[in-house]
Design a binder for these strands. Structure first.
Lengths: 244, 244
DNA sequence: AGATTTCATTTGTCAGACATTTGAAGCTGT
DNA sequence: ACAGCTTCAAATGTCTGACAAATGAAATCT
C-alpha cells in the first residue's frame, strides 16, 4: 500500500480520521482505481485500532461510493471508479434534502433549474442525437394523453427535460443538472395541472423540441424562458389560491 | 420513534438495510430535523442486530451528513439539518473525483463550467450586492500582481467566479456550481499562465465586472463567452505544445 | 484433463466489556 | 434560598475475541 499517512490527530474520532486518511489517499492518487486496500486486519494493525473501528471508517467511505467491498478469499475493499451514474443518486438525494430542509421556495428552485437548463439548450440544439429528440417527442405525446395523472405528468416532464439536457452531450452538465431537475419534482407534484395548463405546457414543450430539431439554440432558449415564466406563474396562482 | 419500518430483506448487508430504513424515515419526514434517534442499544433491539452493526449503519448516514452524533448523557444521534455549506464540500469532493477518474478532458469540463456560469450572469447583474462586486474587483487586482504564482492565480480565479455566481443570490445555483467551479481548479492548475495570458484574462474579468456593475446581463454573458473561448484556446495551446 | 472437495482468507455479524463524555440530579456551604 | 461542587447515570467510542458466510485457489479424485 505505498505510503499512506498513519499519524493521526487526537481530537476527533478515530474512525473519522482513518476514513479521511484513506480518502485522501484515493483523492491524491496514492490509491488507484480498482486497487485493493489492505485487509481490515492489516489496517487495524497499521492504524493501531480495532477492527470495528476500521470497519466504521470503511463504511463511511462506502457510503460515498469511494470503495466497494467483497467477501471471500480474494475479497476486500477496492477503490471504486466513481461513475457519473452512481453520482446521480447521491446528487439527487442531497438536493432533495437540501430543498426540503431549507424550505427553499418553489420560485428559487425553479429559477435555478431553468437557468441551468437554458445553459444547456444551445449545446443540445447543436449536438442532440435522434434518440434525444425522439424521447422528447414521445414525452410530449404522453403529456397530451387525457388519462395521465398529475404525478405521471410531472415524471414525463422530468424525462423530457432530462433528454433535453442529455442532448448537450456533456456528462458534467448532465450530472450537475440531475439534482436540479429531479429534486424539484416533489415540489412540482404539489401543483395540480388543469387541462388548460397542460395544454399550454405541451405547446411550449413542442416549441422547444421544434427549436432543438432545427438546431436553433436561441429559439429553444426563448421557449424555455417562456416555460419558466409560465411555470412560476402557475405556482403563484396555486399559492394565492391556497393562501386566500 | 413513530413507525419506522423494521422488516428487512435478506439479500444485502444488514448495515446497508438499516441505513436505508433510517434514511427513508428522514427523507420522508418521519424523522424531523434535530429529532433524536433511539439509542444504539434500542436500535439494535428494534432491528434485531448487534450494536456494531447498528453503528456501521449510523456511520454511513453520518458520512452523508444526514445525522450527527453527540456523546454524553443527553447524547445520541440527531437528524441533521443539511445546510448548503455542508453540501458544498461533498459536492466538490464528488465532482473532483468524477473528473479525475473519468478522465474528462479540460474542454468538456470548461464548457460545463462556463455554460453554468453564463446562466448565472444575468441574475448576478441584477441582484449582486456591493460585497460581491468588491470581491470581484479585489480578485482582479490580485490577479494583476506580478509576483503571484500560477496556483495563486487559479485560486483567485475561482474566488472571482464564485463571487459572480453568489451574486445571483440563489443558493441552489451557488450549490450546483460549487462543484463545477472548484473541481476544475486542479485541471486549470496544470496550465502555465504567461504574463500575456494573465493580462488578457484580467481584461476579460474587468469587462465582466464592469458589466455586472452596470447591471448589463447581456454584456456580462458576452464577456464570459469570450473568456470561455480564450481559456479553451489556451488549453489547446498547452496540449499542442506538449503533444509535439 | 476435468470435476470435485477441501481449505485458507476475508468480510459480515455477534456478544460482552471498558473508557470517555456530558448533562442532570443531588449535595453543600454560605 | 442560591451558587458552586460532587456524584451519577446514560450514551457514544473503542476494544477483544469469537463465529458465520462467502469465495477463490489449491489439492484431490475420477
Amino acid at each position: 500500500m505505498k505510503s499512506m499517512k498513519t499519524d493521526l490527530e487526537t481530537s476527533r474520532e478515530l474512525s473519522v480520521q482513518i476514513a479521511e486518511a484513506i480518502r485522501d489517499a484515493i483523492v491524491s492518487g496514492t490509491l488507484i482505481v480498482d486497487e485493493r486496500l489492505p485487509s481490515e486486519a492489516e489496517l487495524s494493525e497499521k492504524f493501531n485500532v480495532s477492527r470495528p473501528t476500521v470497519r466504521e471508517a470503511l463504511k463511511r467511505l462506502a457510503a460515498q461510493n469511494l470503495i466497494r467491498t467483497q467477501r471471500g478469499a480474494t475479497g476486500g475493499a477496492f477503490v471504486n471508479r466513481l461513475r457519473f451514474e452512481d453520482a446521480y443518486g447521491q446528487q439527487i438525494t442531497t438536493s432533495t434534502l437540501l430543498l426540503s430542509m431549507n424550505a427553499v421556495d418553489f420560485e428559487t428552485a425553479c429559477e435555478a433549474r431553468y437557468a441551468l437548463e437554458r445553459a444547456c439548450a444551445p449545446l443540445s440544439a447543436k449536438r442532440r442525437t435522434g434518440d434525444h429528440l425522439a424521447t422528447m417527442r414521445a414525452e410530449i405525446h404522453r403529456q397530451g394523453q387525457p388519462g395521465l395523472s398529475d404525478e405521471g405528468f410531472c415524471a414525463s416532464d422530468v424525462a423530457f427535460h432530462r433528454a433535453l439536457v442529455d442532448g448537450a452531450g456533456n456528462p458534467v452538465l448532465s450530472y450537475q443538472l440531475a439534482g436540479a431537475i429531479e429534486a424539484i419534482e416533489p415540489l412540482m407534484n404539489m401543483i395540480t395541472f388543469s387541462a388548460r395548463s397542460r395544454e399550454q405546457i405541451v405547446a411550449l414543450h413542442t416549441r422547444i423540441a421544434d427549436a432543438i430539431e432545427s438546431g436553433d439554440g436561441a429559439r429553444a432558449d426563448a421557449a424555455l424562458q417562456a416555460l419558466a415564466a409560465y411555470t412560476v406563474g402557475l405556482a403563484r396562482d396555486v399559492a394565492a389560491c391556497r393562501g386566500g
